[in-house]
Design a protein around this nucleic acid. Structure first.
Lengths: 86, 86
DNA sequence: TTATTATTTAGATATTTGTCTAATTATATA
DNA sequence: TATATAATTAGACAAATATCTAAATAATAA
């Protein structure tokens, strides 16, 4: 869960997640949405990947990224245990 | 949401939240669960409070803290919008 | 093969964060 | 009033983080 919370604790990364909600995008397309340099975006993608929030697949020169919502189940479960006070 | 994600991005703070899930505790009781100094715990409590994850009430010398799950609704909503790809 | 494009890696740097000790504030009690 | 207890604030410092530019890697196209 540590890497998950870490990954979510950044506005740029949350925006990337929301971009990928609509459709898969390659690294360049993602970077185009931000004023930040490509290496910085690459770094954010790496953190999201480590948290398993996104996955990547190389297609020729491009690297396609897609959202991975499975890991969010764990987060929801954790939140729900808090809400159901025992 | 920024302060919420920030607050959740720390193991000690998540443990504090889980402690408060069971029952309200004062600052000293919370600190007793950790090896960390009281000022550090106080600092964590402040961050949790700013995120509205906990609230505090002074009772004599003591300050009682209690969990505030209302704010977690927003988090769940955000997660759910990600899961329902549009 | 050479040049171009897409992406990541490496290394530097400023900012943020978590932690500590010492000092302060506020309340309770002898 | 003087002392003890609970908690926070202040200030310092090391570690982590986000960002940048320059260099490296990989694939495509001339």
């Amino acid at each position: 869960m540590n890497s998950l919370f870490k990954a979510l604790n950044d506005d740029t990364r949350r925006q990337i997640i929301e971009l990928l909600k609509d459709r898969d995008l390659n690294a360049g397309e993602i970077a185009a949405h931000f004023e930040m340099s490509k290496p910085s975006i690459s770094h954010h993608l790496d953190i999201l990947k480590r948290a398993e929030l996104i996955s990547s697949e190389k297609k020729g020169q491009f690297v396609n990224y897609s959202l991975n919502t499975t890991i969010l189940e764990d987060l929801i479960s954790w939140i729900l245990t808090l809400k159901n006070k025992s």
